[in-house]
Simulated scan of single mutants.
Amino acid sequence: MSVALYAGSQRSSSTADGRVTRHSFSFGPHYDPANLGFGPLVCHNDDVLDPSRSDVAGYPDHPHSELEIVTWVLEGALVHTDSTGVRHVVEAGRAQVLSAGTGIRHSEVADPGSGRCRFVQAWLAPTVAGTEPSYVLGEAPPPGSGLVDVAGGDGLPLGTHGARLLVARLTVGESVALPDGPRQHVFAASGSVALDARVLHPGDAARVTDEPGHVVRASSDTELLVWSFR
């Protein structure tokens, strides 16, 4: 049983024209055999795209297969296009789930008219392989509603059984209880929170293992992202 803190300042990072990505786990050339994932979560990237710095800020067309890809937009707007014919502008406070299944191509770039874009993207291993690719887009939880299922649970359908992404928008002094489960990944996307006696600053994460009953309290206005696994 443990609560392990991971400072945002210690994450590895990648840069490209108009893009900075900070990685919570091993990713591409940033290999750490002791940090390959957390349960079914194999990628947790924090991307900032600046369309004023590049003609195409983000990720041009590229392939994926056998992944559940969950994206939460924190700022600006992200343009998603994929090989099934889907094209959506995903604005801040909205989520998308792309089930890559047997194979799909997609691109994700900043909407030039919306300025800087920031989003957090997670990749998870699917429970069942060989499914048809699919895409779904969801609305934001209203502020003050506590931790709300965004993907999995009562949120968007997700092909990783027992996985849930929950989001809370907290004002100073507000608190939420973490859901029960053997693994919780807690990420302070903005603002600062206290997890029991531990403090998470913007970009920090905590990985909670087999310790139910934790409470998170906001020290400032905060957007909190929690992955819960059963």
Rank of each mutant, 00 (worst) to 15 (best):
A4E: 14
G8E: 03
S12K: 08
S14I: 01
A16N: 03
G18I: 06
G18A: 01
T21M: 02
F25Q: 07
F25I: 02
F27S: 04
F27C: 05
P29E: 00
P29R: 07
L36M: 11
P40R: 10
C43L: 15
C43Y: 10
D46C: 00
D47W: 13
P51M: 11
R53F: 10
P63Y: 00
L74N: 07
E75N: 10
H80I: 02
S83W: 01
V89Y: 15
E91I: 03
R94V: 03
A95K: 12
V97L: 14
R105W: 04
H106L: 06
C117S: 01
R118Y: 12
R118W: 09
A125R: 15
T127A: 06
A129L: 10
G130M: 13
S134F: 09
G138P: 04
E139K: 14
A140V: 02
L147A: 11
G152L: 07
G155M: 12
L158G: 14
L158F: 09
G159Q: 01
G159H: 07
A163Q: 08
L166K: 02
R169C: 04
A177F: 09
G181M: 01
V186F: 15
A189Q: 11
G191F: 10
V193K: 13
A194T: 15
H201Y: 07
H201P: 00
A205F: 08
T209Y: 02
V215M: 11
V216E: 08
S219P: 05
S228C: 05
F229Q: 08
